[in-house]
Design a protein around this nucleic acid. Structure first.
Lengths: 147, 147
DNA sequence: TATTGTTATACTCTATAACTATA
DNA sequence: TATAGTTATAGAGTATAACAATA
């Protein structure tokens, strides 16, 4: 068995894992000024697509435990990014809706991501960027939205 | 401001982050049978490239704290994947070398990654796979090895 | 009795700081 | 005094389980 045969660092699995972690860290740095973490950005995104949702529905979509959803919603509510109102027809449910400020924050996150995209892909040709975008789009479609 | 203008989920930043986390989780599941985690696979990889290294050198390469390196090395030594020998010329240094079993484990990790690659890219055309591999290769070159 | 949200608790990962031994 | 490694401690992030309110 030759070590040269291994080439773990050349697998997509290894590269997606390492690059993903590095990019997520840089993204986190950039949205930290808004007192947000990547999880919050994912939650704002989920709320911006589709109608208002209860915390449990949202927890299911994002694949997180209900207890974590409480903490995330608490934080976003404290920032004024979401509103929490009891569903009058089922007072157990907390219905979450994005506020104007929440939409502003989401735009700020998207801007941060786009500028990071520019930096990341600076060394790629235009064709390579297009191909990368298309390929990741397919892969993202297989998995869910979350994180 | 229209929500439709945002499109955070379509950025490379967002997709690399979410896909990377999902792939890393699946990779972790597959090497768990060998009592390894992604960090250990990264460490075995680093040891397989280049000559034997002290723990501090390795910690620097992988970008982890020295205290974490101790824990990782402890675990790999317990599995018989590495050998730790005191450098006779500087008895403070622990020189780490990969054992035969360590190389076997690295091959197992690479096999797991390759089979995961197949599953992940099942819906991509051959051209898309090639392009994705090339693009990620460039991006991986910019960042370091670690994680 | 079942479900939504909440709180309490515990576990994993990792870093920082204090310490030991060697230099 | 400085450095390699180790140990002790602490923080972030997240899950599980127990609980309260409502159905």
């Amino acid at each position: 068995m030759r070590v040269d045969d291994v080439k773990l660092p050349e697998t997509l699995t290894f590269r997606l894992g390492t690059l993903g972690a590095a990019v997520a860290d840089r993204f986190a740095d950039r949205i930290a000024a808004h007192d947000l973490k990547p999880r919050h950005a994912g939650m704002l995104t989920a709320l911006s697509m589709g109608e208002a949702a209860s915390q449990q529905e949202l927890a299911g979509r994002l694949g997180v435990a209900p207890s974590l959803m409480v903490a995330l919603a608490d934080h976003l509510a404290k920032l004024g990014a979401i509103e929490r109102v009891r569903d009058p027809r089922d007072r157990r449910r907390q219905v979450l809706t994005l506020t104007g400020h929440g939409r502003e924050l989401l735009v700020a996150c998207a801007d941060a991501a786009r500028s990071l995209d520019e930096e990341i892909t600076a060394e790629l040709s235009a064709d390579q960027r297009t191909a990368l975008h298309a390929a990741l789009g397919v892969l993202a479609g297989e998995a869910g939205l979350p994180r």
